[in-house]
Design a protein around this nucleic acid. Structure first.
Lengths: 160, 160
DNA sequence: CAAGATTGAAACTTCAATCTTT
DNA sequence: AAAGATTGAAGTTTCAATCTTG
C-alpha cells in the first residue's frame, strides 16, 4: 500500500476514488485498450474477415517451422484456452486457411498446418494490423514515452 | 516457440518487423491487460459474484444522487451498449441489488435504483477491486513510470 | 489414470428488430 | 418520425464432460 499519499480513498459516499494521476493511468489504460482493440479488430474484420484471435493463431503458424504447430502448443503460446484454439482452428479450416492433420509420433495430437491461401491471407492481414498499431498507438508516443512503456510492460512479456 | 517470434509482425520475410522496444510496449500492454483483468475479474467473481461490468454499473449508481440513474445515462457514462446495460440491470435486479422504476417526467425512461443490499455489496466489491488494482498494478510502478502512464493514457480519458 | 483434443451447455456481448412513448 | 428500453438471434469465450490414446 502507498504510505503517505494514499491514492485510494473510501469517500463519504462510499465510492472508491483514486488521485487524478492514478485514475488517468489505470482507467486510461482500460479505455485505451478498449479503443485500440475495437478499432484494430474492426479493421481486420472488414478487410480480411479475421478476428484478433484468428490472426494471432495464423501468425504463429506462419512463423513456425513447416508452418505448422500442435493445437496444444498454440494454446500454450497464445494464452488462449485449448477449446478456444480448437474452435478457431475449426473455423479457419472451414475457410481453407489451414488443415488439421494428426501427429505421427502421438496419435492423440493434432497439428494445424497453414495452407498457401492461409499464408497469403496472414501476410496481408498482418500488414493491415501492423499499420494500424503504428498509426493508432506508436505514432502517438514520444520516444521517451515509448521507452517507458516498454520498460513497464516488457517485464510482462519476460514472464511468459 | 521460435524464441520471441511475434505474431503481430510480418515475420520471416523481413518485412515490417518491430524493434524489441516496440514489441515490449505493444504486446506487453496486451498481455498486461489480459493478466490484470483476468485476475481482478476472478477475484471479484469469487468474493462478490460480480463481473467488472456489473461493478462499473453499481459504482455509478452508488455515486449518483439518490443512488439512482437512468438506463440510458448509465450506458452513455460507461461506454457500454444500451442493451448490455439493460441485461446487466435485469440480472442485478434479480439479485435484489437494484430496482427498476419508471421516470416520472418521461414514461419511456427507466431508472435503476440501488437498494441497501446493493450499496453494501458495492462498497465491499469496490474495496476488493481497489486493493487488487493497487497490488497488481500501482505497486509495481515507480513514481516516474506512473506519471508517464498517466500522461500517455490521460489524453484517452479527456477524449470521452 | 494422465494428456490431447473435441463438443455441449452456459455466460457475456452485440446487432437488429420491436414496443412504447414523445 | 425520434428516443428510451427491451428482447431475440447470433457470435465469442469459458467450463465441464467426453472420447481417444499413451
Amino acid at each position: 500500500m502507498a504510505g503517505d499519499a494514499c491514492p485510494y480513498v473510501i469517500g463519504d459516499d462510499g465510492l472508491g476514488r483514486w488521485s487524478p494521476v492514478h485514475a488517468d493511468a489505470w482507467i486510461g489504460l482500460l479505455d485505451a485498450h478498449k479503443r485500440l482493440t475495437r478499432a484494430l479488430e474492426g479493421e481486420l474484420e472488414a478487410r480480411h474477415g479475421l478476428t484478433l484471435s484468428s490472426l494471432e493463431l495464423l501468425g504463429r503458424l506462419a512463423a513456425a517451422p513447416h508452418r505448422e504447430r500442435r493445437i496444444s502448443d498454440l494454446a500454450a503460446g497464445t494464452g488462449l484456452s485449448l477449446s478456444r484454439v480448437s474452435r478457431v482452428a475449426a473455423t479457419l479450416e472451414g475457410r481453407g486457411l489451414l488443415v488439421r492433420r494428426s501427429v505421427a509420433e502421438d496419435s492423440r495430437g493434432v497439428r494445424a498446418c497453414l495452407t498457401d491461401a492461409g499464408l497469403q491471407l496472414t501476410r496481408a492481414a498482418q500488414a493491415t494490423h501492423a499499420a494500424g498499431v503504428q498509426r493508432l498507438f506508436f505514432d502517438r508516443l514520444t520516444p521517451t514515452q515509448l521507452a517507458t512503456l516498454a520498460e513497464v510492460f516488457g517485464t510482462e512479456r519476460a514472464r511468459r
